[in-house]
Each structure stands twice: as structure tokens, then as C-alpha cells.
Computed example of a mutant assay.
Amino acid sequence: MRLVIASCSVDYEGRLVAHLPLATRLLMVKADGSVLVHSDGGSYKPLNWMSPPCAMVEIEPDTLEAEAGVVRVWVVRNTKSDDRLRVLIHEILHDSCHELGIDPGLVKDGVEAHLQALLAEHIATLGEGYRLVRREYMTAIGPVDILCRDAEGAHVAVEIKRRGEIDGVEQLTRYLELMNRDPHLVAAGPVRGVFAAQEIKPQARTLATDRGIRCVKLDYDALRGLDDTTDRLF
């Protein structure tokens, strides 16, 4: 990756025309060919950019540009369209290249798969006497995250989300409608539902309650054994 901090102006031509007046900015040239123009604000979003496939060349300024103080010109063209980014550099304050290597990608902690595995391991979180039947119990319309039995032996279908919203309740409702038609599953009583999430929206909780679905808020750290809720003062 090449990082350049420079006093520059930027013009974009293509599906629209945009102009960034002269200012000090960070120019990033990535290994995939993309070029991004950042300011010291706006979080992660660049002010302007050119995504690959594209090609960049550095050229000398023309006479008028040189008279205006331009020392270098970057011309970035998209190879599949007429989009063009033209960066007029007046002064370079920093210019460096860095080999970052292959990135392993983002590993999210607390995603639904982790929550499912932890809840299956600690199924008694749902209530005393609960027993795991299996994870990813397949139905005709998709897998239920967890199928378990309660203390009375009745089956319970558990849908797990990080953020519990109405769509998740609707999904669990469809599973329950199908599962309650299976005589093997309802032998000990109707299949009940549990909607489990780290955060449950009020609308989702209201809908779940109206449909007889129990809501359970999951504490990820407690499931991992990092936070003992019995030791809390509040």
C-alpha cells in the first residue's frame, strides 16, 4: 500500500462531475489498484475514490497547471468505463509504501454461530431440566438453530440472533407451525418456541409474547464463563 499526504485538488469525471478544492489530504493506493482520497474526518469513508479495475499513471503537469503550482498529476482511469479521477498535487508532505501481506479477514466475536454453540453447551440457561436434542434441526423451510426438550420432555425450538428483531420472530413462527404438524415432535405436547438474542427490540418482544414465544436475553460473556452474574451487585 502506498500512503501519500499531499496538498492537492481532485477532479472526478464520469457518471457525475465532482471537484475537491486544494487542501491537505491522504491519498491511498492499494495493491488491488484502488485509489482513495481521505480527509482528516468523516470516519472510514473517503471523499472520493476509484475502485478496481483501474489503472493509474503519474504525469508531469501541463504549462497552466505548473504555473498554478502543480508538481505532479495522478490520472486514474476505470478500465471498464469512462470514469476518471485526476489528482493535482501541489506539495508532497509524506510518501511511503508498505507491504501488508495477505489479510486473514474480519473475525467477529459473538456472532450467531458462536452464540448457538455456547447456548447448546449451556442449554440449562433456558431453564432447569432442559436437554439438548440437536443443533441445526432441519425443517422443510430451513434449520432451527437449536432443538431441545424442557423438564417435562416437550420439544422446544430455539431461534438465536445477535439482534432480535421482528423478522426473527416471524422466522421462528414459521418453524413452529411446521414442527407442530409432526406427530413425533408433539408426542409430549406442543412444540414451544424460545427467541434468544443478545438484544431484543421492544417490537419483537411484543410480537413474540403475543404468539406465545418466550424471549431470552443472552449474556455472551456469561455463556463463555467470563462474567458470573451471581457475583453482580446490580
Rank of each mutant, 00 (worst) to 15 (best):
S39D: 15
W49V: 05
G212D: 02
L223K: 02
S7G: 04
G129E: 05
T125A: 08
R15V: 14
V70G: 00
V158W: 02
R131I: 03
V17R: 15
R192G: 01
A18D: 10
G42T: 10
A140F: 05
E112A: 01
E60S: 15
I59L: 14
D95W: 11
E177G: 12
P61E: 00
A151W: 09
R232F: 10
H98R: 12
L3A: 05
H155S: 02
S39W: 06
L27Q: 12
G110Y: 08
P202E: 05
L172Y: 04
D109W: 10
D228L: 04
I5V: 14
Y44N: 05
Y175L: 07
A117D: 13
L115H: 07
R174D: 15
D221I: 00
A188C: 03
S39N: 15
G189S: 02
M50C: 10
V35E: 10
E65L: 07
G225E: 05
L119S: 04
I146T: 00
D11M: 05
P46R: 07
I102R: 07
M56Y: 04
L20Q: 14
V73E: 03
G42N: 13
K161W: 08
E58K: 03
G110R: 02
D210N: 11
D210V: 11
V194W: 03
Y130A: 02
A18T: 09
V186W: 01
L118N: 01
S7T: 13
D62V: 09
T63N: 08
L16Q: 15
R84N: 00
S81G: 12
C54T: 11
R163I: 10
R214E: 15
V87D: 04
K108Y: 11
A154E: 14
I213N: 12
R131L: 11
P202Q: 04
A23R: 13
H38I: 01
R135Q: 13
E177L: 15
R174W: 04
P143Q: 10
V76C: 11
D62N: 15
G69D: 03
R72Y: 08
T24M: 02
L106D: 08
E152T: 15
L93A: 10
R134N: 09
C148N: 02
G127Y: 10
S81P: 05
V191F: 02
M28Y: 11
V4Y: 03
L207A: 14
V70E: 10
V216R: 12
K30C: 13
D219V: 03
R131H: 06
S43C: 01
G105F: 12
R214K: 13
L16I: 09
V73W: 03
A55I: 11
T229K: 14
D62G: 12
G142F: 08
Y137V: 05
A151S: 14
A187L: 13
D82L: 14
R84T: 11
L233T: 14
C148H: 00
G41V: 03
V29H: 14
E91D: 12
P202A: 01
F234Q: 10
R84P: 00
Y220Q: 07
R205N: 10
L218Y: 03
T125F: 09
T139A: 11
L115F: 03
L226T: 05
D95H: 03
Y130P: 00
L22T: 11
V111I: 02
G168Y: 00
